[in-house]
Design a protein around this nucleic acid. Structure first.
Lengths: 142, 142
DNA sequence: AACTCCCCTTAGAATCATTCTAAACTGTTG
DNA sequence: CAACAGTTTAGAATGATTCTAAGGGGAGTT
């Protein structure tokens, strides 16, 4: 049984993004995009590092940060800022928004089509809209 | 000429908020809510500290942070997070949203009524909506 | 005004997330 | 496999924010 096979899709994904498929990037991409639980993840650098270490992948925190930013620049991830001093990286890069549970710090996706944004004001002068973020902040009901 | 008069409104504002009108809080409230330029301000802790020092108000950075958070808890300010590692405090606490100029780091208010949010999904289970933040991220058009 | 209580302020240390640095390492190409 | 450019790394450095322990100051009471 080949052990490399399952990686070929990820190798392609990295190459297409203009990133060399190194050991570390491959391992991180696997954790991010092929997590057993499936689909969408919202993860911090520290969390990903802990996961990697727990999975016997030796990788430094600096590389975690480098990779997360490279993936983000390549459009493989999206950075979401909800709290000062903590960045989440979202594996769902399609158009969507977020619920944020202030008590637990958890994020949950809201499909883009579930939020209708009408009558947005035009961007000032020569600026153009890079993205519209909608964050619905939630607190525990009693 | 009385020097204390102009402060009486601020004193009331602080007392109503359950905060003792101390020298420092009064001076900071004056800078925040009675700035010469007028209206809405988006300011960081460091910026407010620099302003205070420049205005011959001796106040420590710790007190700046304490006061900003106390004012925020009391509903006199609203905290806006747009970037990891930097918090802005907004003197406009009414319902509204923001343009964020990614190049300069500047924030600009968008009146609440200029954004129509339709068909928001219902909050999950027992949670209730604390606030909805809309941030329109802008980049320089060439 | 003097007394007292409790909240405030402060300088500096401490913490936390993130970035930088300089040296060692590794894909990839020829 | 030689060689270069892109990567990774440990640890130091940075920047924002919080903590700590000690001194200071409102406000009510006498």
């Amino acid at each position: 049984m080949t052990k490399d096979r399952p990686y070929s899709a990820l190798v392609q994904r990295l190459k297409t993004a203009g990133l060399r498929p190194t050991r570390q990037r491959l391992a991180l991409a696997k954790l991010l995009f092929e997590a057993p639980g499936g689909c969408d993840r919202h993860i911090t650098a520290e969390q990903l590092h802990a996961e990697a270490v727990g999975d016997n992948v030796r990788v430094s925190l600096a590389t975690i940060y480098n990779s997360l930013h490279q993936f983000t620049d390549a459009g493989l991830l999206r950075e979401v800022v909800v709290e000062s001093g903590r960045s989440y990286f979202d594996t769902n890069v399609s158009d969507h928004h977020h619920f944020y549970f202030e008590d637990s710090g958890r994020l949950q996706d809201i499909p883009g089509e579930m939020v209708q944004l009408d009558s947005l004001p035009p961007p000032p002068d020569g600026a153009k809209v890079a993205r519209v973020d909608v964050i619905i902040r939630l607190q525990d009901g009693e």
